[in-house]
Nucleic acid binder design. Sequence first.
DNA 1: CTTCGGATTGGCT
DNA 2: GCCAATCCGAAGA
Length: 209
Amino acid sequence: MSDAWPLELTGDAVSVAPRLLGGVVVHRGVAVWLSEVEAYTGADDPASHAHRGPTARNAAMFAGPGHVYVYLSYGIHHAANIVTAPPGTAAGVLLRAGEVVAGLDLARRRRPGVVDARLASGPGNLGRVLGLTLDTTGRRFRVIAAPVTPVAIIGDERDDSLLFAPAGATVAVRQGPRVGVGAAHERPWRFWIADDPTVSRYRRAASAR
DNA sequence: CTTCGGATTGGCT
DNA sequence: GCCAATCCGAAGA
């Protein structure tokens, strides 16, 4: 078993983003099958946290393919990106939504009273279900082969390793503008799986009016 | 040092 | 559709 980050998931975030759909992310006892992602690049992307170059917060975005960039959104939500760009350059894919495919009991406990399809719907909710914190930023995904559902593979809530299983089957991809983004909102860099119930509702940024 | 706004969410009008 | 919650870090003074 090789755990190196795949070459085909390296490079331009806009190209890599749709290929991450159908992949599975695992952390702290929960596995999420990705149904919605968004691409963010570096200096050329005014909506990206890396737009103005490296800082203490966004350092992980420059750390190379397979690293995680976790940021705190609105003081409340932890959102995760998978970095795709070579070290020293910035590009990443925001994990926006997915379906919980293992660790359902844990996921429900982390989001009480929420119907299963909505457990990981939206970047903040996905981060919550995975138990992400700011301490996780800058760490690296270990790549494994699907299927990843057995508990022996995903571990329990104490297991803070980051696993990623690339998509097994081909999925029908849709594309449109990024959610909640004011700057460069015309770029269709959000990708999702057609007709999937876990995909988040589109919301235009207040500043994009 | 202080100010300010956000790659969001859920609840309410 | 509107708005508050809640905190970090980037930027400006």
